[in-house]
Design a protein around this nucleic acid. Sequence first.
DNA 1: CCTCTTCCCTAACAAGTGTTTGGTAGATTA
DNA 2: TAATCTACCAAACACTTGTTAGGGAAGAGG
Lengths: 211, 211
Amino acid sequence: MPERAARRAELLSVAAGVFAELGYSATTVRVIAERAGLLAGSLYYHFDSKESMLEEILRTFLDALWTGYDAILGDRALGPRETLRALVVESFREIDRHGPAVAVFQKEARQLAAQPRFAFLTEAQRDFEDAWRTTLERGVADGAFRPDLDVRLAYRFLRDTVWVAASWYRPGGRHTADAIAGQYLSMVLDGISVRSTIPTATRSRPWPRPT
Amino acid sequence: MPERAARRAELLSVAAGVFAELGYSATTVRVIAERAGLLAGSLYYHFDSKESMLEEILRTFLDALWTGYDAILGDRALGPRETLRALVVESFREIDRHGPAVAVFQKEARQLAAQPRFAFLTEAQRDFEDAWRTTLERGVADGAFRPDLDVRLAYRFLRDTVWVAASWYRPGGRHTADAIAGQYLSMVLDGISVRSTIPTATRSRPWPRPT
DNA sequence: CCTCTTCCCTAACAAGTGTTTGGTAGATTA
DNA sequence: TAATCTACCAAACACTTGTTAGGGAAGAGG
């Protein structure tokens, strides 16, 4: 990575942190600058505007995310249950790597999407919904998921449960991202109730690690 | 309700809507005023500051919420499963009634809590965690919930899944708040997977309606 | 040693922010 | 009718905001 781009990335990382902590609109370029060790005006040597920092943060995150998602969704060998599992795991790994970016995305995406500049967020959310709902519907069709499942609702349920974690998850905590993903999946798939008789294989089999 | 207070409530309702839509800090008093049909300065006849509007909105919501919660938590006749059920239902009803306020709470509470003025948010979240975790622990202890449940994680899971709904739920949609609560409970309690053999009574019995 | 580039600082600007002050039309009360 | 009060408007204030323009220190390359 050229020196130039490395500095950009460093500043974007700081900015993402502040955006996540204070919210985009409450964040001042002077705060970003201070936390990065330079003055407000100097940021404009690297970036066009505060908004363009936000855009680059979100684009970078979505690119990385979809790289992972596409690999999963393109794998025809995976059944709906394994696909869902892999999607959740991948999402938590993304939270682990791009925590602040995910938090910003989760906080601001909805209202930013109205702006033409951030139309790519709308597309992303559409693709998102497609991926999850298709997986859920496949699962209902082939008997992996409950036939009485309200797919629209289940989609929102899954989407929210996964992404909100970005607001409290901190890397280096007592659980790894994969461990949290496992717990989440366990709750989502099998519920928190105690069940009468369920083959253990369906609820606690470790999922395959993507390479 | 005296004329004076009615006008206050009306203005607060408008303000809550804008706060929920644009976020607190991105909201301008001029926008609130315009949407309420008066000029920015006139708001200060009714309120001390923009911040005090926010405070009143959040306090009103939390008061209403805890009125409902206390009734549930004080009911010694309810087992953990029924308590959890009632809490979720009550929460969705609160979303139904105070949608914008809930959305604001969910969006801004975390960073507002740092401010001394909003210390009551920290207390509320503590009481919150107490209520949910106690219920979960009771359930694990008496065998209603899975013994391997990570209560800390399950608490966050429940809290988030319930409140995020405020960001997309709109009253008058295709599902009532109670219906959505039911679906959520079904997913949370029993999961989205098909189960082998489960007595139907444990998963689709209608819950008691609070009077 | 000179020149050029990189990266930052200093200082300022224009627009937008929450808030205050003084006034006023219209209803209410004496 | 005169006095008072209510709920608002008009206009401004002080301050913060994102952003820009010009300059300068430090190093690289010749």
